[in-house]
């Protein structure tokens, strides 16, 4: 970078943000003071950067305490959560998985704890044995006919 050659866009940006080395800053400043193009470009860059707000945060002691309390609560929660050893966590996960499979898998046996399901499956059982019922009815009718014949 010489003081006669125009600065590249990147060097101008770095100059504007004060990110060049001290020697480069001096050479750039010398050039800009004698180059209207670079000076105009620099003014535009400065305007852009000046628009950026610099939030200045001043927390009171009470606010700092409030924040640290929040962090410490999380730290304690995390520590309690981490007390479970890995094997216990794995065992719990496997048990939960098996339980899920057991609950949601299709089964021939109805649940013992749901009265509605018990009733439904009992009714189904009756429907399956309907042939037997019909046979019993036939036998009863035959018995009745025999009685009539006997009296007849």
């Amino acid at each position: 970078m010489t003081n006669t050659k125009c600065l590249s866009n990147q060097d101008l940006t770095l100059y504007c943000t004060g990110a060049l080395d001290p020697d480069e800053m001096r050479i750039a400043a010398e050039h800009i003071s004698s180059c209207s193009d670079c000076a105009r470009h620099l003014t535009s860059l400065r305007k852009t950067l000046a628009a950026m707000p610099r939030h200045q945060l001043h927390l009171s002691e009470a606010e700092k305490l409030q924040f640290s309390d929040r962090v410490m609560r999380k730290v304690k929660t995390g520590r309690r959560g981490n007390r479970l050893p890995i094997w216990a966590t794995t065992a719990t996960a496997v048990a939960a998985g098996l339980l899920t499979v057991f609950i949601y898998s299709p089964s021939d046996k109805p649940s013992q704890f749901n009265p509605a399901e018990v009733r439904q499956f009992a009714e189904l059982d009756l429907v399956e044995n309907i042939e037997m019922l019909e046979m019993m009815e036939m036998l009863e009718m035959m018995e009745l006919l025999e009685l009539i014949d006997d009296k007849g």
Binding site: H55, L57, L65, F67, S68, M72, V75
Partner: peptide, 15 residues
């Protein structure tokens, strides 16, 4: 001690 470290650094980090 950890809480003291949090209080010392919280303002700058949140900013």
């Amino acid at each position: 001690s950890f809480e003291a470290l949090v209080r010392q650094n919280s303002e700058r980090m949140i900013q």
